[in-house]
């Protein structure tokens, strides 16, 4: 594994994007930063700007007004960026599946790497999801190496 990628996995800075959620997921995300869970142990901090971020954390049912903005934010992000969908709404629109305002789930708009289900997911689930994302990247690199051989 290259040193750049190793560093990336050890300090993922998270940008938190709410695409019209009911705020429950957002509160649970903020819980991860509290003394009980303290994700700064693993180098995770909340970034104020998408330009600083390595992880794009999306919550909420994706409504029509948000779609162009999500695309813009995704394009603004410096690559490599990891997209994490948090909560039932951004996974499958949840409660709002029949709503006129929520045409598609998040992964039809931008590529999503990790899904964290729950309404809202527990902080433990969110941390487990990020760990899974890191393991996924590691596994991908291993597979690529084997493919090359």
């Amino acid at each position: 594994m290259s040193i750049k990628l190793k560093a990336l996995l050890k300090s993922p800075w998270v940008f938190h994007l709410s695409t019209g959620s009911c705020n429950n997921c957002d509160i649970e995300i903020l819980d991860c930063l509290t003394p009980r869970f303290d994700v700064e142990r693993f180098g995770m901090v909340l970034a104020g700007s998408i330009r600083h971020a390595d992880v794009l954390l999306c919550t909420g049912s994706v409504n029509r007004k948000c779609i162009p903005r999500i695309k813009k934010i995704y394009e603004d992000a410096p690559k490599p960026i990891l997209v994490v969908a948090v909560g039932e709404c951004s996974l499958s629109r949840g409660l709002f599946i029949h709503s006129y305002n929520c045409p598609v789930p998040l992964d039809k708009i931008i590529p999503v790497d990790v899904y964290i289900p729950g309404c809202p997911p527990k902080p433990e689930a969110i941390i487990a999801g990020v760990v899974k994302a890191i393991e996924k990247i590691k596994a991908n690199i291993k597979n690529n190496k084997q493919m090359k051989k």
Binding site: I3, L8, K10, S11, E40, R41, G43, D54
Partner: peptide, 24 residues
Amino acid sequence: QYRVGPPLLQPFIDIVKLFGKETL
């Protein structure tokens, strides 16, 4: 704040990571 806090090498890791990212 009664947290544990980051490991010693964290600022170095942050800098190395930022050097590997895309500059826009």
